[in-house]
Design a binder for these strands. Structure first.
Lengths: 206, 206, 206, 206
DNA sequence: GATGAATGAGCCTTCATTCAT
DNA sequence: AATGAATGAAGGCTCATTCAT
């Protein structure tokens, strides 16, 4: 009883190669050859576990999105204070992005050529990614908050993703704690921008 | 001296075709054939004005980033109130994204296969895009604002991009005014998240 | 006004390469590379004129079947005597087979994987091939002939094809006149096989 | 002394799978996977009994040609009347073709890529197939019959094959008795085509 | 300058064959 | 003996790029 779920291991091995390459190159520019090399398997082996490059891609997204859902569940378990919850959300997401960066960007791109069946699976992935954070914000935001919860979730998610990606892309080291602090400060303070009727010349409000 | 700047016109024609196709498909999935068709020129003609598909792509980014810079300059001209400036920035960016969506996403992706020279040009583009908004925020944010200005600019830009892209991608109509309102409300209010030491049960801070 | 119908020429060039290779190898074993080489064009060029290997194959059949129809029309024009007509039919078919041998065999094979649209085109080809000869036999056979006309046409066609193919396949030189004579003799004499009620023991009848 | 000839059984099992698949798809389009599945063995097992797909194919032909030889021997045993012999030959062949259709067609195709050794074995198969029927016709045809015996055998074989294949391919049910009747009628009557010098108007000879 | 037919390198995918179990 | 996961060479097809007109 030596190797449990050998098939699953091989599958995961391929998914990791796929993640590395798709993340670096995007879908279209990624070559199956390269994925196979990263995964340490032969090209043909990939097709034993996935029916096509498209299927591999969607499967990867599905896999990784489940994992972010689980991560959130785990991290947010037992937290009460909105601020702590928010901080945990941000930090978890940053850490997650550091692993899966570009992959998540790609999700939004229009995979227009994919057949309907795969488009459906892609839609499910996108919805589930949104759902996790929307859920968190619906617990945090006050009932009279003037912006739609899903909208807030999207903006926060976009803000964090962009910042992380820029840092990573520039080859900068990312200090998760410090970055979380900055994002939190931004989210909590908002952007002080003066009253609408302020007279010209006044630059600062708060 | 018959047709002045005929070359420039032809060049712009091609850039427009390129923008349409790159925006819809991303870099790798875009085909030169299709760009030529969109532009209404023969495929070979493109190579009279650009040395390669890569060059065409970078050139397009350069061109369009200048244009967003110009747009901002124009729009923000003479505005004084931070709130009005911010609103104008948001609205301009939303309108811009509605035209150039995917194109901007692509900017962040690492065009890893591009030769060094083009990588340099890409870097310049990215820096200039950041600079425009960073500049705006440096005028808006109070001196003691606890978050780095460039960081804020990135987050706002990411937030707006993500929200616009999601709406567009879902095929929803985008009401620029309404969306601007929502983004502004979010930016100004921030995310009320309670004090760090707040006892459980307290939801709102501000 | 030098090159009339250059496109048609190139197309025909490719069809000739295709015929050579499909005839020699059959459909599945034929490689597009090889067809291109035979035709003296690059692989990609083939796809400017035909949408796929399957399309190329069906198009070839269509092309060549029209040509056998035309050949028959031309050859049989003005012939009156049934024997002369029959002889002409046989000879024409032999000559035709010497050029298109295996190709015609393949027509009957079940191209089961082809999409419906191409199956339709294949069916049309097969029907048209049968029609030509069925038509000839309906003019030759007496009204009270005990065998269905289409059936006779098929058998004669099968008999001739098989004989030609065997000779060609064995690398024997084919003397068209002599072979036509033999086939004619066979068709006219039939196979003398004795009366049905002959008593056992009688080996020869005539 | 457990299982006598287990190896032979397994071998026959594989040959049956091979026959089913080669018959339906032809040589090149047949996949070893599918043969294994039809045979109910693992893919690797096939290579314990046959050294390659090519070997399996040739072996199958050899096997089945022996079987048609045996069939003929058995069927024709004790028959005396040429007509009865001929009828039996036709009927046996039709029944055989209904089982092995495409397989036989394929024999004629030039397996050009096969190595010399296998080409030799293929040649032997083809010769033996011809020999069986040539032998029968040499017993049936009168000594002064004007057509070469092997030639007649080929033509009859081609005629029957073609007719059977067309019916099968069109999905029509094949009534063996009725078809045998038609073929016999054709063979015995021949094609009445008038004398060579016949005056127009005379249609029938016999 | 403009064209678009032609090219061929390179990609996704298949499948005969091997080999560790 | 039997398995079937793994392999990798080879095939169909695409598409950036060139060049004769």
């Amino acid at each position: 009883m030596s190797e449990p779920a050998v098939g699953q291991e091989r599958r995961e091995q391929i998914l990791e190669g796929a993640e590395a390459v798709f993340s670096e190159k995007g879908y279209a520019a990624a070559r199956v050859d390269e994925i196979a090399e990263h995964a340490g398997v032969a090209k043909g082996t990939i097709y034993l576990y996935f029916s096509s490059k498209q299927d591999l891609f969607i499967s990867l997204l599905e896999e990784r999105c489940c994992s972010i859902g689980a991560l959130f569940q785990e991290q947010l378990q037992g937290l009460r204070s909105p601020r702590v919850i928010l901080r945990s959300l941000i930090e978890t997401r940053i850490r997650f992005l550091l692993r899966h960066i570009t992959l998540f960007q790609v999700v939004v791109q229009s995979m227009a050529d994919f057949p309907d069946e795969l488009q459906q699976r892609l839609l499910v992935v996108r919805r589930s990614v949104q759902a996790v954070e929307t859920d968190v914000f619906s617990r945090i935001l006050p009932p009279d908050y003037p912006v739609d919860t899903g909208f807030v979730a999207s903006m926060v998610s976009g803000a964090v993703s962009t910042v992380v990606m820029e840092r990573v892309h520039d080859g900068q080291f990312v200090d998760v704690e410090a970055m979380t602090d900055q994002v939190m400060a931004f989210l909590i303070h908002g952007v002080p921008a003066g009253s609408e009727d302020c007279q010209a010349g006044t630059n600062v409000l708060f």
